[in-house]
Amino acid sequence: MTNNTAAKADDAERRHDQNQYLTFVLGRETFALGILSIKEILEYSAPTEIPMMPAFIRGVVNLRGAAVPVVDLCARFGRPSAAVTKKTCVVIIETRVEDESHVIGVVVDAVNEVLEIPDSEIEPAPSFGASIRADFIQGMGKVRGKFVIILDVDRVLCVEEMEMLTHAAASGEVVQPAA
């Protein structure tokens, strides 16, 4: 009996969590990420640089004995990276590809808050017009009358895609921007 209620409470909590988002700032825009994929938020410390990597890979940091890669989201979105300030943070995110889990840190300019965005308040991604690649967008959440871009973590931090880009950089094939 108690088990049952506990399970129900658990379930309710999970459903509740699913609608919870962390909002953060990149440049002048606000983005959101589902909190279920977020492990922790760290103060920014300069990562160890890895040579011959594309600009969106800042390097690796020591997270309690494991070497965790750090991705610069600005660079990943094709924008110039912002200067490091006191508010700069590294958000540690866990993604799953098939059965493998990958822990990756992302650099953001500042984190704002965790808030709830019910499904009814989320609009589908526009096919164009957004400031970042359309497939990076999971949806547009309405928060206090403004839209925030909810990021699709699995696409933004797609290990396979990034691996290809790092490989291209490491072997010296320069990927030219489309003319």
């Binding site: 890895i50 040579p51 020591n62 004995g65 070497a67 965790v68 493998e100 691996e163 790092t166 490491a170």
Partner: peptide, 26 residues
Amino acid sequence: KPLSRLFSRIRGIGGSTILGTGQLAL
């Protein structure tokens, strides 16, 4: 400490290690 799969095709670097200071070295 093995590097993430992101760096699986990197050449010249085999892994990383943690220095006494807590910093990572390649």
